[in-house]
Write a protein that binds this DNA or RNA. Structure first.
Lengths: 200, 200
DNA sequence: GTCTATATTCTGATAGAC
DNA sequence: GTCTATCAGAATATAGAC
């Protein structure tokens, strides 16, 4: 119970964010109190305010950091074929989201907990990510490599499908990450292409 | 402000559930207070407890009702072809969920707000629904009509993809409900089949 | 069946000692 | 930088009048 004195700013800051990430993901932003976060970190509630001006900003910073890391890690448009670029996107999305289940969960479950200004900023980052996929689909459609009736709808459909993986996939289960990536790539590929010789 | 006396049990009960459904969907279970629900209905907070023993039960009843209605409306296994049964499922899912965006949203956003026993009961209903789709896919795979590497994964992928529609589709927008159903059915069909003559 | 009033607990956030 | 103590308000739920 002690821990009465000492400087821990370099350590405590990340621990506050880690605790908030874990608890927000498990119970939801509104259901988690600052005291719960403090207890998880091992400090008193008042000490949290050395690391965030308020609870809302704590949530926003978690979401913004996640989206920025996602965009930074996203493979840049290469001069590879559209088929290879799509495959790369699918595998990237599954792998990246698998490594950060809590952040992913928060990023699209807690959008409604954001105040309007913060919501707009996160939404803008999310759209940039969607656009990366939409660009690939549009390029493939233009080249007649993909059969896509509506690139916007297909973008949303593919992302919804891929993000759903995080709700059930756990390492060490029946399937390896690679096997899951293989299967989803197979489904996405068939979804947007028509094999040579097809009659429909 | 009056409304001081009178019997309204037949009217007020449904209005309490409607208000809770709306507010839970918009702000989340934990973020909505009983006072807010009461204000929406036009009664005092204490009066709500004539219609629900507590807030948790109110949420549970909303979710259970939704899942039961979903299962009841689900087309029964017919002796139609597996292809027709799959198409029927896809169109049904989109149409049914489109009619009840609030209930759908709550049903899979607020699972974590349920106490363990209630969670188990809702989860059981959800699994029955998934099984209906999985049965169709398994039957189609057995008949070599569908190409499905893993029926469980494909089931989850299709449901995630279809449910995602509710996050963006609004009647009166760019696309009609029928057009959306057509496009999703096209994507799902390609996802699980290989056209005759395909070489891969 | 709804009201008013209230018990009890918890909330986010701040002040000041160390 | 963390603690203790506290403020002001809101939370769920209940009791009893009408």
């Amino acid at each position: 119970m002690a821990r009465t004195t000492g400087s821990h700013s370099d350590i405590t800051g990340p621990r506050v964010r880690a605790a908030a990430l874990k608890l927000f993901a498990r119970d939801g932003f509104a259901a988690v109190s600052m005291r719960q976060i403090a207890r998880e970190v091992g400090v008193q509630a008042g000490a949290l305010y050395n690391y965030t001006p308020d609870k809302q900003t704590l949530l926003f910073d978690l979401m913004r950091t996640h989206m920025e890391e996602l965009l930074e890690a996203l493979p840049a448009p290469a001069d590879a074929s559209v088929m290879d670029r799509l495959e790369e996107f699918v595998r990237f999305h599954i792998a990246f989201h698998h490594e950060r289940p809590d952040a992913v969960f928060i990023a699209y479950m807690e959008l409604r907990s954001l105040e309007p200004e913060n919501f707009a900023r996160i939404e803008a980052l999310r759209r940039r990510y969607e656009t990366a996929l939409e660009d690939i689909l549009a390029a493939g459609a233009a080249q007649d490599v993909f059969v896509v009736a509506d690139t916007k709808i297909t973008t949303l459909a593919v992302i919804a499908m891929l993000t759903g993986v995080t709700t059930w996939f756990r390492a060490g289960g029946r399937l390896s990450l690679g096997a899951v990536q293989d299967q989803y790539w197979d489904m996405v590929r068939r979804m947007v292409t028509r094999p040579p010789g097809g009659t429909v």
